[in-house]
Design a protein around this nucleic acid. Structure first.
Lengths: 242, 242, 242, 242
DNA sequence: CATGAATGAGCCTTCATTCAT
DNA sequence: GATGAATGAAGGCTCATTCAT
């Protein structure tokens, strides 16, 4: 069984936490072990930082030995990548789901911005972990960006957004979002920081002044019921011998 | 003499490069050595990344031994900090000077945004180095932020900026600025990216739509007159490990 | 196999040597490696002194790499301690066993004193090693002192010893014993030094003049048959992170 | 001037302290510098231990630089030796002087034993320093031993001591004395420990039971007025070039 | 003589990775 | 698949010692 020995990361807000921790019942032994290792990696990354984490401590946190880790991942880098993908897929999809039924891109965008800010407020450890992993593994943020990009294009099509370039718009919203996450997670941000940032991002995207503030202020929709999480699929079932 | 062994970082755009490389003639031996070490650290940080740099390689790049490094800096962390402070003071002050005479905060802000973008276009290696150091040593970005914060408050006083909160505004402009620097430095950004980002940041700060675009499009002022100094020689961009 | 590269320490007198070097056959791999490392540490401590010994040389003497040492001991200090405990337990117990059946504390005390002197004569290297370790790791001498203290109290109860204070008596017998060991081991002592010292210690403890000389002169009992040495058990199988 | 920066060792009991610290007025500049360095070495040895002391800290404590140290001493070892000789000559002579006029060796011996114990009680730091230096530099204890040896031979000639061998007698009195110093300095010894140890040593040397106790209990003579301390003579006035 | 920057050998320690069991 | 002992290549850092000024 797992042996976390004092390691722990504050639980994710419910629906997100469930998604990650979900014990998919139909999984084979290999996938279950892999999942345990990823969970352990999350613990250790959060406690020591990605750079400071060691394979041996991840193995220990998973109740295994370091050799076992290498039956599932080729290198430490691989683990970081897998954790990044896993978090990205689970989190982003979940957040995206909560926007289901919202037709206007401006509101979808505001919700997206505020949802990440909300995550940082509810689970600072998770937010910092995501930012830490993203620094090593850019694919995580790329993953998040895909969803935002869809909304951006939608908003442009809906004539709610008027931007000089999509690339610049992405810089604006991702940059502001990340900074907000960090400030909130470290306790450096005032209350309603999420609304303020969302408001300014919308204005930057060309939404009229008052309308931006009004949209950003609307209540966040629920995250919705948890689905059965898809396991983080291994790229290959086996490490080939070199 | 220095022994860069193939290490080098592309020269900074003229006026900035001069500021950093300036061989102060009245400096004592200790101060000269310290300066050489900082220059060497910049080389190695740029080539290997801050995390991947080793004291030994910095010493070697400076034509010294590792022991000498410790006559000047207590730990590797200290070196990162010193490099950060050095760059921050030189760069920020220089950029700030170029805004002298500009009274309107909106234009000052646009210039600031675009100047960093311009740096990333002219000297991608320096831009990436700054972002890398900033990730380890937040004080560097804090330093930059101080100047932006002054302009922000000025713009609010001038009624050009209307923001929900100063903290959110700082997230917006620093976040967008950093992302733009990274995209430009890595070649991922289209031409005129700087203008586009500056435009959107101004809009986010509450500047009217068309006016934001107009201000952001104004020509950049010169960086100012060069000081006495030789720039460091540019050689190769990357060095393979032996 | 071990690679002592010229390192060596003169073999202990038989029964003691057997106790230390005993290859316990039922030992696991980990325990066997640990034992080899302790043996190697003894070699190196003896050759270079405790202070001059390096982890690398211990590893090399054990035919391993320095990393392996750290799988078994946290620090160099830990190794010194482990060697100290190991020697103390093995030697002291063995010497104490040889006094079995001796009822009078005065004679037990004389035997103890002379046995250590005898060790110094037979195996100067071991004696000097013990003194060296004891200087770094007082627990070794404490261990020895426990046995002497028992005899001291016994002798007081038997009215053979009359001392102003137990603490002073311990100073006398341990101090004289250590000095004698050193002088004998370095060849600075005349023959029968052990008897002379034992005589004087007994007199210091209040044994009448002639009787002290007579007791100290009695023949030493055999050390007795060797037992299978108990391995120096590791406290924990693994080092936990702090 | 000296710059002890928080370093300090409890002052020696007056007459001894004066002897060591005495500013011999007729000394040349070289001798004065040398003296300062020895004083500084005493500070640092006491604070960090002989093994943990660094040349640079000694230099700093003396208000000089490391280069200057090497104008006076060839190696670190040389410094330890010089400090040892200095302390030995000053202290031993001073203690010996205080016995002037005492004719009976038994009483001289008791005074010697108790004087070192007294030093340990009055100035634990000095006592521990002496023991520490003695471990590295046996000549210090040899020096002390010379005085004790004189008294030993005297006592034998006076028929007060009856010992199996002089070597054994030296082991007894030096060993017991050192142990007593350590226990007293570390606070591990009861009151009147000095008298108890002296009593037992005398008995060990053959002094009759009650008489030993009586002699050991006599009051200690004063240390006497301070003399002008002789400077610790440098072996050579100059380091020859290799 | 004093300075103090520079040296450089070498130490302890860490940890991703391998592999025989 | 799991184990976990072993590896070994570095890396950060210390400090006695040298030497040009």
């Amino acid at each position: 069984m797992s042996n976390f020995e004092g390691l722990s990361i504050a639980a994710l807000p419910m629906p997100l936490g469930q998604a990650l921790a979900a014990q998919a019942p139909g999984l084979g032994k290999r996938e279950r072990t892999r999942r345990q290792l990823l969970l352990a990696a999350v613990q250790v990354f959060s406690a020591r930082g990605v750079a400071g984490a060691t394979i041996q401590e991840i193995a220990q946190a998973a109740g295994m030995t370091s050799g076992t880790v290498y039956n599932h991942f080729d290198t430490k880098e691989t683990i970081v990548g897998a954790v990044g993908v896993w978090i990205a897929e689970t989190l982003c999809k979940r957040i995206n789901d909560s926007q289901r039924g919202i037709e206007r891109a401006a509101q979808r965008m505001a919700i997206g911005q505020r949802r990440y800010a909300w995550l940082a407020r509810e689970s600072p450890a998770w937010a910092l972990l995501i930012l830490d992993i993203a620094a090593t593994e850019p694919s995580l943020m790329t993953h998040v960006a895909v969803f935002a990009y869809e909304d951006l294009k939608l908003g442009i099509a809906q004539k709610d957004f008027r931007v000089p370039s999509e690339a610049a718009a992405m810089n604006l919203l991702m940059g502001a979002g990340n900074q907000a996450m960090r400030d909130i997670a470290t306790g450096a941000a005032p209350p309603d920081h999420d609304i303020a940032v969302a408001t300014m991002v919308l204005r930057g995207l060309g939404v009229p002044f008052e309308r931006a503030a009004e949209i950003a202020r609307r209540p966040l929709p629920d995250l919705g019921p948890p689905e059965t999480a898809k396991p983080p699929a291994a790229m290959a079932r086996r490490k080939p011998r070199p």
